[in-house]
Design a protein around this nucleic acid. Structure first.
Lengths: 399, 399
DNA sequence: CCGATAAAGTTAAGGAGCCTTACTAGAGGC
DNA sequence: GCCTCTAGTAAGGCTCCTTAACTTTATCGG
């Protein structure tokens, strides 16, 4: 969304006002990259002249986006005054609505988590779940000691796809009633924070890209295997969403299963592992985790079930590799703990399926991937918002 | 490539020189969109002031990028002088190297084809093929009457993937020796035109997006079915290439064929249609075209072969749809003429494979898709180049 | 035919914001 | 104490944008 605004602006004319704004933005971004820097250093790095840097930095300081943060003594010569972005100039909210857990975090503009809460999600009705989200978010903001008005943006991760026009979630098979219209509007209203809604696998991909093993990848795919099955794709640092936000809905991949075509999601998700294990002879109260644990102990039925799961994931990876050409595929979600068991069978099967062999790695963030992705996304928008409102306060606007 | 430069520039500081340059660029682009416009009209549309538009337009005219093109009488008031981009300010070269045909076109900056030649490609050795390309390109430029130095950029479409580092084509299975290093360097040198090399399916996608049925699609996939099998993906108007330029190499899709896993390319390409027809009982000297023609006449073996081909294509489309979420899939290439026969079986099979059902359409450009894609790509870069060299000639450069 | 109106385009004045140059400030080395 | 080196400031100039007023050229209505 923020990115689209920038693109739209490129058709606008360039007056000196825009020039100044762009240079201030350049300095702020550079400062975030460096952590802290002197005016002279910024001038060298950006190519701007020293006076320009001084004046732009003064504006940023007046707007409260930047502040002095210490000094640095060069080998010889006058000591420099260091500036850094003010992390307290605004805050962002991240929410991960999972079937089992609800996670909420508030971060400052540096991306540091200032408050967080993970609560079991026992709500069955969608209204109760919305209430839980709002309540927990209020509580986290309260605990953080941050003025609620300073939480300028929030991002929510949920299964399914958010339809901007109908203002509701679609394709959230595992959350009954969650597709009702108006749910998120109510949450926005009660919370008083703008909320952006994204698919959980997409956010997990962004999280893993920003804070995890995906860093620096040109094209990277995150496969979320849990109750459901999803994939998020990050291309050149930006989320790849497709025409209707359905990109990566690999639950819909054709899968050569039985006579009647079966959805891949049903063949790969946690439920399928349990089903396979049962078919191979395991019995009792099984969960996916239990099957993986048994396989680690050497239980033959469990080993065969895991082997089969590996083959199925390999099929998914092979399809994604042929279409997208990723340089890295990360496996995460519920099976995240068990990726060590899966890597070998996936790799072996992949060799028989396709000559393409992207690097495959387990998630580094584990259960936090979705939340951190939400936080990273919200942070990006929050930084934009805080920067944009600067002008209005700092100086009078004239035509 | 041009797009990447723009991104890189965004980290550079914005001085006054850049300001002017950006506004001139804005005006030129707007002018291309409108075809022709008066200064007052441009001022209204861009938001720039009238004096600024006058002065920037004068610079552009001095640089030869823009010229007066007529007048327009408003309902009342003084008649306006109309300006338009000068199409003769530079030229671009497009080349489609296919196994059967070599196509070359020269276009002016408006995108109008000023000369074109299609020749049979009978060369078997790669060196002969390179010579044929250079010879034909020279001839087309000669016929166009354009000064060869004014052909500022060229784009070549070929099967396979061009490796920028090794400076050679890879994965061009159907062109023996075509992967040799130095081939394109020699062509560049002998022709004296910078040549960019791209995968043919990718260019076809871009061509169909720019001039064909793909116009305005948010995410669109072009499936090229001919001697080989390839897919090009255009996302938000830009080519989607993946991490190593292999995106859309759907020849590598896993395909539930026989006992031994078979490459999808072998199952879907033209050769496979012939093979299937033979298996179903046809005989004689068969080509893919012959099979399709026979099917149109009602030959049962041919009909079954076409049916099977439809199922295979449906499998491809289903996989692409689940991963990419396109709003449009175009079928083109050698089977382009026969898409009418395929649409029904593809649609039917797709219904059984996946709930996702992107719009499927035949190519509008047919055999010209690759060439027009090459031309469109070259045109973009040529416009950039011509705009950039303007400064050097028009005015002295000062720090 | 002549003034009113309207649109296109130019001229002139003013100002925003950048750069360069030249300076001051402060820290170490000899 | 003086030299050198780096950080930062001050002054002046240049570019290029905007606003506002003006000129030019067309139509319309009397």
């Amino acid at each position: 969304m923020a990115a689209r605004d920038v693109v739209a602006q490129q058709d606008q004319p360039w007056s000196r006002r825009r020039l100044r704004s762009t240079n201030e933005r350049l300095l702020l971004d550079r400062l975030r990259g460096l952590g802290a820097a002197s005016r002279a250093q910024l001038a060298r790095e950006t190519g701007l002249s020293k006076p320009t840097v001084s004046s732009a930095l003064a504006s940023l300081e007046a707007a409260g986006l930047v502040h002095e943060v210490g000094t640095h003594a060069p080998e010889r010569g006058r000591t420099a005054v260091l500036y850094a972005p003010d992390p307290a100039a605004g805050y962002a909210l991240g929410v991960d609505i999972g079937r089992g857990w609800l996670r909420v975090a508030v971060v400052d503009l540096d991306g540091t988590v200032v408050a967080r809460s993970d609560v079991r999600n026992r709500a069955r009705a969608s209204a109760a779940m919305a209430d839980l989200v709002v309540g927990t978010a209020r509580q986290v903001i309260g605990n953080s000691g941050v003025d609620p008005a300073e939480v300028v943006h929030g991002v929510v991760g949920t299964p399914g796809v958010y339809d901007e026009k109908q203002r509701r979630v679609r394709y959230a098979m595992h959350l009954p009633g969650w597709g009702r219209a108006g749910l998120f509007d109510r949450m926005r209203e009660e919370l008083g924070v703008p909320l952006e809604v994204h698919n959980d696998a997409n956010l997990a991909a962004l999280g893993e890209y920003t804070y995890g093993v995906g860093a620096g990848s040109r094209l990277f795919a995150y496969i979320l295997i849990g109750t459901g099955l999803g994939m998020g794709v990050v291309s050149e640092g930006r989320l790849f969403t497709g025409a209707h936000g359905l990109a990566g809905e690999i639950g819909f991949l054709p899968w050569p299963g039985r006579q009647k075509p079966e959805r891949l999601e049903d063949a790969v998700s946690g439920v399928a592992v349990v089903e396979a294990a049962r078919q191979f002879g395991m019995s009792g109260q099984l969960t996916a985790k239990a099957v993986f644990d048994a396989a680690r102990q050497g239980n033959p039925a469990a080993v065969r079930a895991v082997e089969l799961e590996g083959e199925r994931i390999a099929h998914t990876v092979a399809a994604a590799a042929a279409v997208l050409d990723p340089d890295l595929v990360v496996l995460g979600g519920g099976v995240g703990h068990s990726v060590d068991l899966l890597l070998r069978p996936v790799g072996e099967q992949l060799r028989t399926l396709t000559p393409l062999r992207p690097r495959i790695a387990p998630s580094r963030l584990g259960e936090d991937a979705v939340l951190l992705g939400a936080v990273a996304t919200a942070l990006g928008t929050a930084r934009d918002l805080v920067f944009e409102r600067r002008t209005g306060e700092g100086r009078p606007v004239r035509g």
